[in-house]
Design a protein around this nucleic acid. Structure first.
Lengths: 163, 163
DNA sequence: GTACATCGTTAGTCGAACTAACGCAACGGG
DNA sequence: CCCGTTGCGTTAGTTCGACTAACGATGTAC
């Protein structure tokens, strides 16, 4: 099992002596970035093991939940920039998880559809992500996890609506 | 004053129709990265307005709280990689906020000291950061802010101790 | 004294988030 | 019917943070 993808000792600032100044340790922004760094790594490594990336999941889930759509629409649904969508869809198409066909009614558009294979893939990814989140949130009780999600959601909403 | 640094309408996936799939919207990892992106931008822009960066603050605060140290030690205290420390210290030295002198007792080391100017600078940065965090956490009550910090701290601790 | 660890530094990788600009197609109004 | 605007897919490129690798010089332990 010991796939050693993560930082192996050595070089990283590991806060060994715990001399990190208090002011720093309490900063919400700092906690956020550090935790997010770990979280992202965790998720990316976990998904990599099943040949997926988080954008894949975002697109597939969006297709499942709202049906086919143009690339631009998927971009809006999933929060991926339209410029990055191209690559994600290429990867998904390579894996036969989506189909990309030109829209006959609007020749600017491609219509993206989730494939049978893609549909079969989703539950698997759901499971993987669930497990990873379990690892991520391990120290928290279910109630605390909800709290966290709540708080984060409120903050994010605030900062998206006030653009 | 209208420095328009942030994303100006137009292109970004703004979740206008709020068609983001539920599964995505509840994912802690996703909430974290999105919120962190905003948070980082907020902090960076705010600090840029007083010609600072967050690493500057981290180093200065660490020097203030624990006294002078070698670059490697500062790196450990502040969580900056030793390879990135060089640049940060260059910037701080340019601004006369720290002094970097070779350690006579160990000629591999530089000893970094906070300057008088650096010491005067800190309260200013503290204030700026306080205000920015106020903006960041605006929708939360004081109690909720504490809760958030608590939860994040516990998670981060967990993931640093279990390496 | 020789192996090993540590320090400062340089260089470079990787992924995420984002901007700019393109050619093309569709839409809306005069 | 043309025309300006808007939306689409795509390519390219920037910036930033996090991180790895390797270097030469120095110090430490056996």
């Amino acid at each position: 099992m010991g796939a050693m993808t993560r930082a192996e000792a050595a070089d990283m600032p590991d806060d060994g002596a715990r001399k990190t100044p208090d002011r720093l340790r309490r900063q919400a922004s700092r906690l956020l970035s550090q935790l997010t760094a770990r979280s992202d790594r965790l998720i990316n490594e976990g998904l990599a093991q099943v040949d997926a990336r988080k954008w894949h999941y975002a697109v597939l889930a969006s297709l499942q939940e709202y049906g086919p759509g143009s690339q631009a629409e998927l971009s809006r649904r999933s929060g991926i920039y339209r410029s990055d969508m191209v690559g994600v869809l290429n990867e998904l198409a390579e894996r036969d998880l989506v189909e990309r066909v030109p829209d006959p009614d609007d020749r600017r558009r491609n219509i993206i559809t989730i494939s049978a294979r893609g549909r079969r893939r989703l539950p698997r990814l759901d499971k993987v992500l669930d497990d990873l989140h379990d690892e991520l949130l391990a120290p928290l009780s279910p109630a605390e996890r909800d709290q966290l999600v709540q708080l984060l959601t409120r903050l994010l909403d605030h900062h998206t609506r006030t653009s």
